[in-house]
């Protein structure tokens, strides 16, 4: 007998012949968040800053300039070619001279100092950005290897709760949920920001 048949057979034996129908799962927890869009932006900002991310707000016309100045703050003086952007980031939102991810081997992305991407959705209550592997979010390695990550979030992409956020996502896409910079609590259970992922996270809120 194959291990598959063996295990399935054991499960059927363990559960017995007379299985009752599983009880209905009651989802009477909060499914939506009725706070106003403005309030949600404030909550998102508060949560992200609590995780030591930097949040800057700007108007739609100022995105490229805001990203450029955030990069100068994070990296100091740098070559424009140290910055790589996800292919779906619109041209008028890219910092001058930034390089588009051309699909080179993933490990080669480690040579860049910073990445600029969009997001698929942002969840205010938990301070979470979700990237979905689309051209706007970029492939997973892009938001992982360079040490500084700049994410551009549109106000319309911000939802209140985790259920609302997951409902907007495609379960088949390669998803990365990001809540603050990389961190660890492994030494005496004290949180330290910055381990293997980007040590600097900048969120540009377009509102």
């Amino acid at each position: 007998m194959s291990a598959r048949d063996e295990i399935l057979g054991r499960i059927r034996t363990a559960l017995g012949p007379d299985r009752a129908a599983p009880a209905e799962v009651r989802r009477d927890y909060r499914l939506t968040d009725d706070r106003s869009p403005d309030e949600l932006l404030d909550v998102l900002t508060d949560r992200l800053e609590d995780y030591r991310a930097t949040v800057v707000r700007c108007a739609p016309s100022e995105v490229a300039a805001t990203v450029g100045s955030a990069l100068r703050t994070a990296l100091g003086e740098h070559s424009p070619a140290d910055v790589v952007v996800a292919p779906g980031v619109p041209a008028d939102r890219r910092p001058d001279g930034a390089v588009e991810d051309d699909g080179r081997p993933a490990v080669a992305l480690a040579g860049y100092a910073a990445t600029v991407t969009g997001v698929a959705v942002a969840i205010a209550e938990t301070g979470t950005l979700v990237l979905d592997g689309s051209p706007l979010s970029g492939r997973r390695a892009l938001s992982l290897l360079p040490d500084c990550l700049v994410c551009v979030v549109e106000a319309a992409q911000v939802v209140g709760s985790v259920p609302e956020g997951l409902a907007r996502l495609d379960p088949l896409a390669p998803l990365t949920m990001i809540s603050g910079p990389s961190a660890t609590s492994d030494i005496e259970l004290q949180r330290v920001e910055g381990v293997h992922g980007p040590r600097t996270l900048v969120v540009v809120l377009v509102a």
Partner: peptide
């Protein structure tokens, strides 16, 4: 577990995605 509102990273994937991972 860690007493955080959300852990820094959660990865979700289904099978193989060409060109990613």
């Amino acid at each position: 577990s860690t007493g955080e509102r959300m852990n820094p990273y959660t990865s979700l994937w289904a099978g193989v995605t060409p060109g990613d991972g």
